[in-house]
Design a protein around this nucleic acid. Structure first.
Lengths: 188, 188
DNA sequence: ACCTGAACACCGTTCAAGT
DNA sequence: ACCTGAACACCGTTCAAGT
């Protein structure tokens, strides 16, 4: 190339993530390549490595960037049932905002564990629900995987295939209700 | 090469699947390549295409081959609770027999839907549990995704990370119990 | 029928070089 | 500092050719 850059501006990580999310949204994670991404950004493939360590780091970064948007329910005095519902819906909305990325998250446990704010709120709500400390970790984990499994099914299209007549959101609500019922039954 | 084949025998699909499962077990699905698989089988990469249409077809075939081993509980008169537990454990044992393949299954809804025998047994048990026909599909789907989510967490190592002190099998049992409780509460 | 080699259009990433 | 080209070691798959 004649001069220094093909484009006016230097690359931004934001700019890179935006392109990643768009491309992943269109072609899935396996449709993303460093070379196509670079082409999309009108840049030499190797320029990307100045902003990102590897393709995996890039995807992980995109995931945590998306996770920033998680709207955790505040610790006002609202009943735990309501707060759990709010947490579940907030999580669903993040997960389904980029369905293709969700499967990537699911197979990278460190990304899930890393979602500290969510775990704190989850703890608080379960304690309010009367879950004893000794069972907190196990119940929290089980309930998380339940919700996570349902979201995966929705993200991947399995929900629609197994229950074509059902509406995904009401199915989600029913599932959360089921979890609430179980917690209430356990409390008594 | 001098003569026709590098090896004595012609290739078998069984032989191919066995090698696939071993390699996937060692290096995950993304560690499998047609070329490495061919090398493992001491064959030219292109020979594989005489037995299999594509890499995706190969993986799908391996998945359904594994799924053959699912030990469905028979329709003897045992209580539905016991049958549901048996179904859950049978499914778990298949899923975790090849943990790396499980994530592949999870992102391919057609593979899950295709598991007809399982859906039939699942139906039977839920009807015995008193689930009304109108809710059968939704409840079955939700419960499936719950179990599937938990198995994914176990297969990928998330379970151990979120609840390090917990034993995976007792966690699984607790989760199934929770589902049984919810079904029983609903029946009354 | 079953296998093969060469070739095509891709990958992620390293490294030395440019401005 | 930021970007680049050439190169390396890989991919899946097609196609014409071998036995």
């Amino acid at each position: 190339m004649a001069v220094s850059a093909r484009r006016g501006q230097p690359l931004t990580i934001q700019e890179i993530y935006t392109a990643v999310l768009r491309m992943v949204g269109e072609g899935g994670v396996e449709g993303l390549s460093m070379r196509k991404l670079a082409a999309e950004l009108d840049v030499n493939p190797m320029s990307l490595y100045h902003h990102v360590e590897s393709k995996d780091a890039l995807l992980r970064g995109a995931c945590t960037a998306v996770a920033q948007g998680l709207a955790l329910p505040p610790d006002d005095g609202t009943p735990w049932q309501e707060q759990l519902r709010a947490l579940a819906h907030a999580y669903r909305s993040i997960a389904l905002s980029h369905p293709a990325l969700w499967s990537y998250v699911n197979s990278h446990p460190d990304l899930v564990e890393q979602e500290e704010g969510m775990w704190v709120v989850f703890n608080r709500v379960l304690v309010a629900a009367g879950v004893p400390a000794a069972e907190l970790l196990r119940i929290r984990t089980v309930l998380y995987t339940f919700v996570s499994g349902l979201l995966t099914a929705e993200a991947v299209g399995l929900l629609a295939e197994l229950d074509p007549a059902g509406d995904a959101e009401t199915t989600f609500d029913a599932a959360v209700d089921l979890i609430l019922d179980a917690l209430e039954a356990r409390a008594t």
